[in-house]
Amino acid sequence: MRQIILDTETTGLRVEDGNRILEIAAVEMISRKLSPPENHFHRYINPERDSEEGALRIHGLTTEFLSAYPVFADIVDEFLEFIRGAELIIHNAPFDVGFLNAELRRLGRGTIHDYVAGIIDTLAEAKELFPGKRNNLDALCDRYEIDRSNRVLHGALIDCELLSEVYLAMTRGQDSLAIDLGLSDEDEAGGPGAHGRRHQGSLRVIAPSTEELAEHVAYLDQLDRALKGTCLWRQLEPANESAA
């Protein structure tokens, strides 16, 4: 599956006030593996207006700096081709989608949903995982022990890179069984002969090594720290041991 972690920086918080996009970054991930940097998309954009004071303090991109860059209309085709058919991963998706749709409407290009397979809002997912807690990108990086020391100002590209790590940490363990078993795409999709290959012979059980057991314990410790409590696996451990 091709996924795109996407972020924008804007001249202000409200698209209704005529604020515009001034930076877009889109980081490609295929089958939960980040593509090399040369396969990512990152553009500064001349928004044709000044940034609001509060927004300027966040991103630090001045009108003078941005005046040397193309306007959105000049990069729209390249951008839409890059994201076409992918699933977008965005933190607080309604914000970025609202600004992207406003830019596309100005050019008569429909909406972002016309070009992508779907959109995942990691803020909404984080709120389900950690209700009542702070779930902005900084808080999630701290919760998952992701280094954000290079993030002095908000920037679309570095925010995408951090969000990619947050997303992989949030969704760890949700990989398909086919990946774990090393099945091909045909097997996973139920292609010809897949059923027979899955069930041929008896299942070979390999006991974990001491090193693997230690890694498992370390992973559970990480989950406990992120949850600030006891993860479900450890709550079920007594039942698992008694059933053994």
Rank of each mutant, 00 (worst) to 15 (best):
N101D: 15
L220I: 10
V152Q: 12
H91P: 09
G229Q: 07
A139D: 13
E215F: 00
L163K: 12
A86C: 15
H195K: 14
V205F: 02
E53S: 11
P94H: 03
R225E: 12
E23K: 02
K133S: 06
D74T: 00
A126Y: 00
D187R: 09
R151T: 08
Q235T: 10
Y144T: 08
V166D: 09
D138T: 14
E212P: 02
E23R: 02
G229F: 10
I158N: 14
D17N: 13
A169P: 11
L6F: 13
I5N: 08
A73C: 05
P208T: 01
I146C: 03
D221F: 03
L88K: 11
I112L: 06
P94E: 10
L220K: 11
I30H: 09
E78Q: 08
H154Y: 06
I120N: 01
E87T: 15
N19S: 04
I90V: 15
K228E: 07
K33R: 14
I158F: 10
N135D: 09
L157R: 03
L163C: 13
F130C: 02
A214N: 05
I4R: 05
R197G: 04
E128M: 03
L223K: 11
P70I: 04
R134Y: 04
P37D: 08
C141W: 03
R225V: 05
A207L: 14
K228M: 10
R105Y: 00
